[in-house]
Design a protein around this nucleic acid. Structure first.
Lengths: 123, 123
DNA sequence: ATAAGTGTATTAAGAATGTTAATACACATA
DNA sequence: TATGTGTATTAACATTCTTAATACACTTAT
């Protein structure tokens, strides 16, 4: 399913969470399907079950997974995690924009920045 | 000059740097004037000189101070630190905007956000 | 020259935090 | 009731961070 990189200096659970998130965002994990159990994935990757649990908890916190007690963890429906993700990013963007205003960057410059970033190739 | 808050859980140097930055940004410290020496401010606040040094180093890194060897640390000219500050904030804003694009937030929503944030009272 | 004032580099001790593992618990279902 | 699920708790270990002690380098006034 995923592969850990031991040259990566980040903690295992963070690395796992990031790889799984990317997998979900890129459609590599079908919504509503069950994730591997904490223990089975732990065996597969040779780590402690708690490490997998922590990665799952992070993904659940971010809305990518949900858990049914005793049955397992499942991938959230696309529309749902997409909305959560957009809300998080939107909050951060607003904070960055408020800072820009406070620093005296004119609104016109921001709008020009949007044109540039949204214009680069795609869209 | 400044006062440390011991209920604040952040490290001393960070607290000092933040308070001094605010002081400079708000015009409480005249550009081109000398800062208190590392040792004198350390005595005044009852901390180790290295702690003050670290705060000063941070401020210098961010362009708020500059140092003349053997003579002391001085407040940077307003235009200069303002430009540094805007550059930092601009970089962060661009990153946030690129993320917004990747998450599928439409450009129009961002532009509306700018109107709202820049419109709130002042301008 | 030299003393006193500046910032800075180096090192170490200690504290605080973060990460992983061990273990036991609670729930669901075959 | 046995097996499979996620979760809570605790502890050990590692890592990072913070502060202090000390010595160094430079400038300037005496």
């Amino acid at each position: 399913m995923i592969l850990l990189d031991y040259r990566d200096k980040r903690p295992l659970y963070e690395q796992m969470a990031e790889k799984l998130e990317r997998l979900i965002v890129n459609g590599g994990l079908e919504p509503l399907t069950r994730m591997p159990s904490v223990r089975s994935l732990a065996v597969e990757l040779s780590v402690n079950p708690n490490t997998v649990q922590r990665a799952y908890a992070q993904l659940e916190q971010d809305g990518y997974l949900y858990t049914v007690s005793g049955r397992g963890s499942f991938v959230t429906a696309r529309e749902e995690w997409q909305e959560n993700r957009q809300n998080r990013i939107w909050q951060e963007w607003r904070a960055a924009t408020a800072q820009a205003r406070e620093a005296g960057i004119p609104a016109e410059r921001l709008i020009a920045g949007i044109r540039q970033i949204y214009g680069e190739d795609g869209q």
